[in-house]
Amino acid sequence: MSTVFTTLDTPMGALLLAGEGGVLTRVTFGRPEPAWRAGDLPEATGQLRAYLAGERHDFALPVRSAGTPFQERVWAALDEIPYGRTLTYGALAERVGAPRDRIRAVAAAVGANPLLIVRPCHRVVGADGSLTGYAGGLSAKRDLLTLEGALQTALF
């Protein structure tokens, strides 16, 4: 089965969506693989547009990702973080049963998430609430958390 991709213009930049047979396999701010072909992913595009417009708080999309068993556990825990809420890396480690000295491994699994926004890795923050690491950049993470009401916009 071949992978198709489309891009979605967002306030944070062009978002790349890729899938196979109607199943979403990647959402990123990156570039398409050379073997992929341009195509349509209308359901994913529509749901992401609605999310970015503040009209949708979760996604109902068939998705597939291939990670290690540890990554899959971490990713499943990401799916449990509610819209408009954040969770620290330490709390996430605790949820997946990882010891405190494995927080970096948890952070690496979060960083390997191939489904940005749809699988809400942007909702994971540092122990002090600071915004740390995001494949789409910290500005995009800030924008997403502000959209969800988890952060206030800067006051002047």
Rank of each mutant, 00 (worst) to 15 (best):
G126W: 02
T68K: 12
P114Q: 06
L116D: 06
A77C: 11
V110Y: 00
I117P: 02
L116Q: 14
W75T: 08
A93I: 10
G67P: 11
A108L: 09
G90P: 00
T68Y: 08
A108P: 00
G54W: 08
R119I: 01
V63E: 01
V74I: 13
C121I: 03
D58Q: 09
R85A: 13
E94W: 10
V118K: 01
G111K: 05
R85K: 14
L61C: 07
G67E: 11
P69V: 04
P62E: 12
G84E: 11
T68F: 09
R119V: 03
R102H: 14
S65R: 14
I103H: 02
G67F: 07
V118C: 08
V96G: 05
R95P: 12
V74Q: 10
E72T: 15
R104N: 12
R56S: 10
L48A: 05
S65G: 07
R95V: 07
L48G: 08
A77Y: 03
A91E: 15
F70V: 05
A109P: 04
V124N: 05
A112N: 12
D79C: 00
T86F: 11
V74D: 07
Y83S: 01
D79E: 15
V96H: 04
A76P: 08
V118N: 03
G111H: 13
T88V: 10
T86C: 09
L48T: 09
A77N: 06
D79A: 15
A98L: 08
R123T: 04
H57Y: 03
A91L: 06
P120D: 14
R104Q: 13
P120H: 11
A76G: 14
E72L: 14
P120L: 01
A53T: 06
S65W: 11
Y89N: 00
L92S: 03
P114D: 02
V125L: 00
P62S: 11
A91D: 15
A98P: 07
L48E: 05
P82L: 02
A108S: 15
R85N: 06
R73I: 07
L87A: 06
V63P: 00
Q71H: 15
H57F: 02
R64P: 01
V63S: 00
V110G: 00
H122V: 04
Y51D: 07
Y51P: 06
A98V: 04
R73E: 13
E72W: 01
A105D: 14
P69S: 06
D58A: 13
G111L: 12
I117D: 01
F70L: 13
L61V: 03
W75G: 04
L87W: 05
F59K: 05
Y51C: 08
L48D: 02
L78H: 10
V124E: 10
G111V: 12
G84S: 14
L78Q: 04
Y51L: 07
G54N: 05
A107M: 14
A91W: 01
A105F: 10
R85F: 06
R56V: 03
P99N: 07
A107K: 14
V124F: 06
A105K: 13
A66R: 15
V118R: 02
A77M: 10
A66T: 09
T68H: 10
